[in-house]
Every structure is written in C-alpha cells, then in structure tokens.
Design a protein around this nucleic acid. Sequence first.
DNA 1: AGCACGCCGACT
DNA 2: GTCGGCGTGCTC
Length: 707
Amino acid sequence: MVSGEKGEQAGRPGEQAPGGEQLALIRETVRKAKEPRAKPRTWRGAALAEGLPVARVLVDKGLVHLDQFFDYAVPAAMDEDARPGVRIRVRFGARVVKGRREGGTLHDGFIVERRADSDFAGPLAPLAQVLSTEPVLTPALLRLCRQVADRYAGALADVVQLAVPPRMARAEREPSPDPLPDPAPPAPGPWTRYPTGPAFLQALARGDTPRAVWLALPGPHWPLELATAAATALAAGRGALVVLPDGRSAARVDAALTALLGAGRHVLLTADAGPEERYRRWLAVSRGAVKAVVGTRAAMFAPVADLGLVALWDDGDSSHAEPHAPQPHAREVLLLRAREERTALLLGGITGTVEGAQLVDSGWALPLAAAREEVRAAAPLVRTVGDADQARDEAARAARLPSLAWRVTRDALAHGPVLVQVPRRGYVPRLACDRCREPARCAACSGPLEVREEGGTPSCGWCGRPAADWHCQECGGFRLRASIVGARRTAEELGRAFPKVPVRTSGRDTVLATVGAAPALVIATPGAEPVADGGYAAALLLDGWALLGRPDLRAGEEALRRWALAASLVRPAGQGGTVVVLAEPTLRPVQALVRWDPAGHAVRELAERAELRFPPVARMASVTGPPAALAEFAELVRLPEGTEVLGPVPYRVPRAQGGEGWERLLYRVPPGQGGALAAALKAARVARAARAAQLPLLLRMDPPDIG
DNA sequence: AGCACGCCGACT
DNA sequence: GTCGGCGTGCTC
C-alpha cells in the first residue's frame, strides 16, 4: 500500500500543534470576563439587526500584531449583507470625548462571525459599510489562515492578506460558470514507470489519503504525472491543488491538465494572468465552480472545496518561501492542509529535500521512486571534470575550456542542442587562489575578496579596500580564480569555438520556455533552462565551483538540485545524452549526480542534520534586532522547556532597512516542540506590543540562513 | 501602529 | 504665565 494511513507519528506533520493553546490565548484577550448582555449597546441609536446584531470583525491593518478580533454592531439595513466572510469597512481607533465618539479612521476588514452578543463591555460602534457580499474569508479559509499564523508566530491579518486576493469589483459581479460533472479517471500513463505509482493513483481514486515523497524520473513527463494525479482526485469527486515554483512549470502542468480533462475543470493561478483575471479564477474556486487549481506559491491558500490532494513540485526551490510576513513556506502550508483537511499529498521533484526525506523517515509519507534500471534508462551519462583533470589539461588551461567539455560539446552538437549552465550574473562568489584554492582574504581585515564587475579590481567584501596586489598567504600564488568570470568566459569561448552554431541565452531578463531540436548552444542560468524539444544532446554545468563554495547549510542539496534539474532536460544516456559537470568528483553532491541518486543524498544530509541537531531535525526560530530589543524580548519570553538559546551574535541585516549593530538570537527546540516555541514567541511579541515597543524586532520561524 | 491625554523646561 | 517634550494607555 502506498498510503501512510497509520496515523500521525512524531515528526513535523504529526506534531500535535499547541495551536490550541494559542487559540485559547487569543480568545482570552477577546473574552475579557464580563458576561454577555442581552442587547449590546451601541453608539448612535440606529436600528440594529434583529437576529444577530453583533459582527465579530478582523480589522485589516489596525493592531495587527495584537492579533485580536473586534466586535461591531450590525445596523438593520446591513443585516442581510453582513454575512461571515464578507469584506466590510469599520471605523477604528475612535476616542470618547464628552460621551461622543470622535475620530477613528476607516479600516478594511472581514466579518468572521455573526453573534447574538458581545463580550466587549463598552458600547459597540456600528459597521460602516459592507464592501461586498462575496464571502471570501470562508470559515475553512479562516481556519487555515489561523493555523498558518500560529505555525509561524505571525498575525492572522498578515496571513489573510496573503490568502485572500484584493477585490476586483468587475470580476465579482460576473457569475462563475456552472461546475462540470466529475471526469472519468485518467489512465495512469507515465506513472506505470514507478513500482508504486499505480497504487498511489488507486488509493487516490478510492478517496484515500496516500502521502508520497516522489522522486521524478528525469525527462519531460512529470507535468503529465502531476496532472494525472490531480485528475484522479477530481475523478474521485474531490478537489486538487498543485503548487509549482514558477509560472513556466505551472503552465506546463496547466497544459497537461487541459489535455487530459479539457478546459473548465481547473484554473491556473499565477501572476501572469493579471489581478482581475486572477481574481476571477480565484472566485471560481472559492464559489466551488472549479475544484482543481494549478498555480505558484500564493495558490497554496486556494480555498478548494473538499480538497482531496495537495501536490508540490520541487520543494527545494527557494521561491516556495513567501517573502511577506510571516514568511510561510508552501511545503509547510500544504503539509498543514494535508493534515487538517485530510488530503493526499504528493511532494515531488527531480531531487528531494531533507524535509522530504524526514517525512519518509518518520513514516508519515512513503517514498515513491522508480526502480534502478528505470532510472538508468532515463538519466543521462554524467561525467566530471575535477581540479586535477583541469590542471593536467594544458590545452584546457590555455583555452579556459576543459578538453572533455569541448569534445562532448562538439560531438553532441551533431545531434541536437547543448545546454550550458552558467552562474547567475550578479552572484558574487568568493575569490580563491587559482593554484591552491585557499579563499582569498583581505590583507587588512581578513574579509573575503570579491569582484563586483567583470574585469574589475577585486576588493574586500567587508572593508571595501581594493586588493590589486593580492598574493596567496598559503602558497604565494598571485592569480585569483573567479568562477563567474571563468564560466561566462567559457561560454563565450564555446560560442567562438563553434561559430556556425547559433547561441541562445536564457536568464534573468529573458527566460526562454523552450528551444527547438536543432543544434544550438543554449546558455542559461540555473532555473532558467529552457526545455528542449526532444531533449538536449548534452549539458555543461559550469557553475559547480560557485554553487558548492557557499557557506550554507543547503549548499550541497541546492547544487545537486540545480544540476539535476538541468541534467533532467538531457536525453537519456542510451540516446547519447551526456552531462559534464565542472566540480570535484569526490564531493557528495557530485557523486549523487553521477550515480543519479538524489534519494541517497537527501538521506545522508538528513542523518548529518540529525547529528548536528540542525533543522528540520530540530525546529529553530530567530529574533533579530538591536541588542536592547533582544534583551527586552528575552526577558519577556517564556520559552517552552528544553529550548536552547543560541547567541546573540552580531548579525548583518540583509536589507538596508535594519541598521548597524544588530544582533541575532536563535532558539532551538526538539522536533515536535515547534508549535510551543511559536506560541511562546508570539505571546512575547504581543506582550511587547501592548507595552510601548519602539525598538524594531524581526521574528522568524525556520530562518533560512543558518550555518 | 496611531493618537490623545498628561505633567515638567525655555520662550513671548 | 504658555507652548510643547514624548511617557502611557486605548482602540470594538
């Protein structure tokens, strides 16, 4: 059986979120004693709605961090329209002068509940206006937002802003199309390439909740596989949600689903559509007219009715992390939904993440991968060019192009396009000695040397001093190695070496979705690789050195991810597909690529994290701010038992917003305690805000930049 | 977060 | 004598 029905075990998804406590905490602040009165008093004697004269309101921008609801009186005239979930406008922040309310600014908000009475002791202000009768913040969506807010120690209003798109009146006026009948179940198609693939679909078709961490075979079939899974859920009468890291991949799944089911049974929720069309599609989902959603990050909140399957593609892609507060990650939100809404889960990618490996390790999800011979049949041949090879290769040194790479390119160009993956421009890796690879450091302050522009003088990344006459402290070498410059130049060399072959580039400003099957050199930055018709004949991965040189916990996972994504666009080895990666063959991610064993890599990474007690084997949170703010916070917070406090240490604030002299405090708790930690941090933040909190403070669950 | 009320220094 | 400093408390 593919299904992991045996109940929630230890590990994050099964974590019994002390969200309950959190809810209680918030309710207490609303329910400050006082027994309810028969009739709420109100300002101005206007007639109130008869049945349920009180509306509990989520005020959009006022007091966000206090995270509480406010009760308003419902005028009789608004009784009909003021339903739970609708957008309203209220006066907030007024003050009483000589028995009259004065001032108060209009705020947008949502009605979360209609009630017979209020817990609030004072007189209630009336709702100012019902903006729209569309119940957008439905009880189910509200519950999800609440859980995400608790999970991330954030405010409900912040999450709601992420989950409910801005209103577009025109789209709202139009009726949504009538829902289509459930489709017939699709054929398993390429899923038969995986031993447990058909079983996963069958469980889905039965309405079970199978949960799988899926390692997709390299090649062009994964969009159809995702679409097939979604269509199977639909055929079983349930909804489906597929989240992808970018518009291009979402468009591919959208196309596959349209090919499978025709139009009208799903919507594509991406930024490309524009706000009005996007809202129109979102409404179709919210109204239950459409039961399947394919989209990018923000679609993770899509209010799909009777959700039966959540699927996430390539969860290692950093764009799955929402940049806005409280910075929820699509993987975590979808795991939450899978648990709370009792849905199947499909966490897929060409490679995996440690988080995925942990889901398998805990038994909550089952691995879904192809057999070894199937992998061998689908994967390209991977060859490495390490330092030793390059050093030996005199011709290569002269041409700045390893001869293996040159030969592979020449041979492959006879059969089709060749992909050249180069590091992203503007990405500045550390410089190192060309001879011994020792990182190049500033003679004055030991900061890392950088080259800001191609051909420029290297300078210190800390103190800014130029280092024109640098020489290596270790070996006396005087040549610097900068992989960006090197790789870009290599790409240029290639273009010159094959003058008759067209060169196409895909990167930041112009990202190509596809290229044809004709011979061409396709230069692309990671993540911007076009899909080649019939697959690339070969790929050169020139940024190995840059990817692995980063002092990041995820450097290895990320390097493997980017290489494998590029390599997955290359034809299988049996059809001559070859990949050359310029990286040390002894390194773990390089070996994983050569053997095409991303699962093994993730498992080893997980074991290492467990040993170091690094996330996701522990849960962490960071608090960043001026030392005084940290001290104040540390005094206020009541941490759950067993919390480790790390730091504070000086911390450079990423954005210019912060300031000099900030520090960062890390909290670490064992797995299963994340919810308790989040609740504690949130309580402290609320307590701090209730006082006069003028010092800035950034709070973050699962900080991404540790190690 | 805003915004006003509230008790102590240098100005017409 | 008054204008105004920002400390503290409230917002349905």
